[in-house]
Structures are given as C-alpha cells and as structure tokens.
C-alpha cells in the first residue's frame, strides 16, 4: 500500500480535533500534577513520621506501576464504588497523580537544595516562617526546578495516547478509529507519530533554553 496524500488531507480535520483533546488533557493533567506533587512533597517533608512514611510508600507504589493500569483502575473500579467519572476526567486525574509522584521529587529536591544557611539567615533577620518561605526559600528553590518540571510535563504529553484505552477521543483514538473504518493504517498512525515528534522536538528546543537560563542560578 502506498502513501496517499489525498487521504492525509481528508483525515487531517479529525486528527486535529483529537489533537485538541490531547493538548487539553496535557494542560489539565499538568495542573493536577503540579498541585498533587506539591501535596505529596509537603506531606513527605513536614507531616508527622507515620504519615510521611505512608505517603512515601504511596509515591513509590504509583511510580512502580504502569499508568495504563492506573487509568483502568480509575475508569473501571471507581464506578463500582459509586464514583462515576467521565473518561477525560479519569484520564486527567490518572495523568496528574502519576506524574505528580515524579514532580513531588522535583519539589523536594529543589527545596532541600536551598542551603541551610539561608534558613538560618532568615531566622537571624527575624523573618517569620511565612516570610522566609516567600522571600528567601522559594525564590531560590523554584528557578532550578523549572527545567525538570517542564521535562516531566513533556513526558506526560507523550503518554496521553494511553487515554485512548479508556475511550477518551484524543489524537491516538481518532487515528485508530480512522484506521479501522478505512482499513488504512499507514497515514493515520504515521501522522500521530509525526505530531508527537514535532511537538516534542520543539519543546526539547525550548527546554534547552530553559536549562541554559535557569541552571546559572546554581553558580552564584
């Protein structure tokens, strides 16, 4: 079978529709991941010992199991206990929790990398804990985190095709349904690959720029 450009233009609108959902899932997933990551990080760093340890175990467990199975869990098991989520919501929560566990490590690393002396200096100048966080610790902790956070969000973007397994009509799912109804796999599957590759390569380019910009913070 040959590559057919006419067919490509014919399916492009459907693929773009799917691509919109892919982008939407990525943005929402990133928002959930950034918040959940913070919750995990704070629990592991400041909660009483037993809670911190349980959180640590949960984080390890989520990181050690496949996202696909976690999505199935959210999509198939939760309705049995009365929580019925629309596919996209289940997908966004799944992505958010999974990548939240990775992101929590970024937060933790970033905060722990602020030298102890900065805390002591904040205390010595009579800043409240709140002031110390806002004016001393976070401004130093956040910039070095940015490239790592962006990296995980790009990784999450690449994993969004998994949402097709729980019936979200994103790019991959649209491509699959086009392929199945036309019996042509070359164009839709290749285009999915190209879409992801192009966006990833562009984002890697910007990631390099972010790294160049923010890694200088370390070398004071």
């Amino acid at each position: 079978m040959e590559w057919d450009w006419d067919f490509v233009w014919q399916i492009m609108p459907t693929l773009l529709q799917g691509f919109k959902i892919t982008i939407l899932a990525t943005i929402l997933g990133a928002a959930v991941a950034l918040v959940i990551g913070l919750v995990f990080a704070v629990l592991r760093m400041t909660a009483p010992r037993p809670i911190a340890r349980v959180t640590g175990f949960i984080v390890e467990f989520i990181r050690g199991t496949p996202l696909l199975v976690q999505l199935y869990f959210l999509f198939f098991v939760l309705p049995d206990i009365g929580i019925r989520l629309p596919a996209l919501v289940a997908g966004v929560i799944g992505l958010g929790i999974h990548y939240g566990t990775y992101i929590s490590e970024v937060y933790r690393g970033g905060i722990e990398n602020v030298p102890r002396g900065q805390w002591e200096a904040a205390k010595a100048t009579n800043l409240t804990t709140r002031q110390a966080w806002i004016h001393v610790i976070l401004p130093q902790a956040i910039p070095p985190m940015i490239p790592a956070l962006a990296n995980y969000i790009i990784a999450m973007f690449k994993e969004t095709p998994l949402l097709s397994a729980i019936t979200v009509l994103e790019l991959m799912n649209q491509a699959k349904s086009i392929a199945n109804s036309n019996y042509r796999y070359i164009e839709p599957m290749t285009l999915v690959g190209v879409f992801f590759l192009v966006i990833s390569l562009i984002s890697v380019f910007f990631l390099r720029k972010l790294e160049a910009r923010y890694s200088r913070v370390d070398e004071r």
Partner: peptide
Amino acid sequence: IEFFRGTSIFVQLFWAYFVLPF
C-alpha cells in the same frame, strides 16, 4: 535517540505493529 524519545512506547508499538506490515 531524538526519534525514539520524541514519541511514546505506545505510538511506536502501534506503528511497528500496524504500519511495518505494509
């Protein structure tokens, strides 16, 4: 490296399974 890191295992797997036969 860039090619295989630019897309996920899922996309690559489908491509290998459905497109390579052609």
